[in-house]
């Protein structure tokens, strides 16, 4: 896409809006054709008998894969446009010198919309804490950024509906805010590695080019290429496993060990989840299948949060700047928060 061939910003803006509108209509049409298509494919083309295990697994797979990928493309594109308004630098300026409670809330919210990748976690951490962002506020950001992400939300919305997606969003934010606040109260600043405080974040002028709408669309398209390009395989694999569980695992199979009555299932789910490293794209379809077979909502949410928010590779990266005591506190506080969310949802539903 060559952004600069556009004759003037207004013309290019209109062109992009028209393209976007047309794209959205086509998207909508295909999206609503997916369910009839899956039925036609399974029961007409393959001529499978309705109600058999194989048919149910195949119909599930043929419907869910394109549905989730389409939702993902749409949402990642728009989130990409939203993110083009935010930079870590701007977020840092907003958070620097904030009072804790307000800072924790702001940091958790900005964690959703600020472009972030775990490979930049270390420079970001140093940049934040050496320029007056309180440690706890920094943690609120670092917890929220990976946990509350658009891929997880899209998959939860697509496979469970908006209520579960909203619950995940709300409880993820609450965990990020409270965990960051607790870590701040514990005053663990001296458990940051010594060399960090010696680092000076330069205050040179960074490029602040005015971004045109064409560039924002370009940024959204890039995000789609990057994120969907990275996760599509996991989506297919995850839904494949989910389809297998959907068709072949008996109803209520999970109830005995991931159901509500098994109190120990929540802590177990968290403990198993921490060393597991999977992105949301692979884990949500499996989680959905587990839930369908009688696992309790709180237990599976706790499992999913532990997998996404507390990942071993991120801990290893953060070990460069945090002493083991602070890492352990971080895992402990967030783990407790997830545990609480798990029990709460098991209790409510």
């Amino acid at each position: 896409m060559n952004v600069d061939s556009a004759p003037s910003p207004q013309v290019s803006m209109r062109r992009y809006l028209m393209l976007g509108g047309a794209g959205l209509i086509v998207w909508w049409g295909i999206y609503h054709g997916l369910a009839p298509f899956a039925d036609w494919f399974t029961y007409r083309l393959l001529a499978l008998t309705q109600g058999t295990r194989l048919a149910s697994a195949i119909a599930f797979f043929v419907y869910e894969v394109p549905k989730v990928l389409m939702l993902l493309t749409l949402v990642v594109f728009f989130v990409g446009i939203v993110r083009s308004f935010f930079t870590p630098e701007r977020t840092r300026r907003v958070l620097a010198g904030r009072r804790e409670s307000v800072g924790n809330v702001l940091a958790a919210l900005l964690g959703i919309v600020t472009p972030f990748c775990s490979c930049s976690a270390v420079p970001l951490f140093i940049g934040f804490v050496t320029t007056g962002v309180p440690l706890g506020v920094t943690f609120s950001f670092l917890i929220s950024a990976p946990m509350v992400n658009e891929v997880a939300l899209v998959l939860l919305f697509g496979l469970f509906g908006w209520k579960v997606a909203a619950l995940y969003l709300g409880s993820g934010l609450a965990i990020a805010i409270l965990s960051g606040w607790v870590i701040g109260r514990l005053h663990m600043e001296h458990y940051i590695e010594g060399w960090v405080t010696a680092v000076q974040l330069g205050d040179a002028e960074l490029p602040t080019e005015t971004v045109s709408w064409a560039q924002r669309f370009h940024y959204g398209a890039e995000a789609v290429r990057d994120i969907v390009g990275r996760v599509w395989l996991y989506v297919i694999l995850g839904i494949g496993v989910g389809a297998g569980i959907h068709g072949y695992v008996p109803e209520d199979f999970m109830a005995s060990f991931m159901g509500k009555d098994a109190w120990w299932s929540v802590p177990l789910a968290v403990i198993i989840g921490i060393p597991m490293y999977s992105n949301a794209a692979g884990i949500v379809p499996i989680v959905q299948a587990l839930l369908e077979k009688g696992a309790a909502l709180g237990t599976v949410l706790a499992f999913m949060m532990a997998v996404i928010a507390l990942s071993l590779p991120e801990m290893i990266i953060l070990r460069k700047v945090l002493k083991p005591q602070l890492i352990a506190t971080f895992i402990g506080v967030v783990g407790l928060g997830i545990l609480f969310v798990g029990y709460l949802f098991n209790f409510i539903f």
Binding site: T87, C119, S120, I126, G127, V199, L201, P207, E222
Partner: peptide, 26 residues
């Protein structure tokens, strides 16, 4: 990392031309 940060950069990759940062995080 210490040198990277001295450029004021928190999100890698970045590119500096003749000492001035031109690209950050993409």
């Amino acid at each position: 990392l210490t040198v990277i940060m001295s450029f004021g950069v928190m999100m890698t990759p970045a590119l500096a031309v003749d000492g001035t940062v031109k690209v950050v995080g993409k």
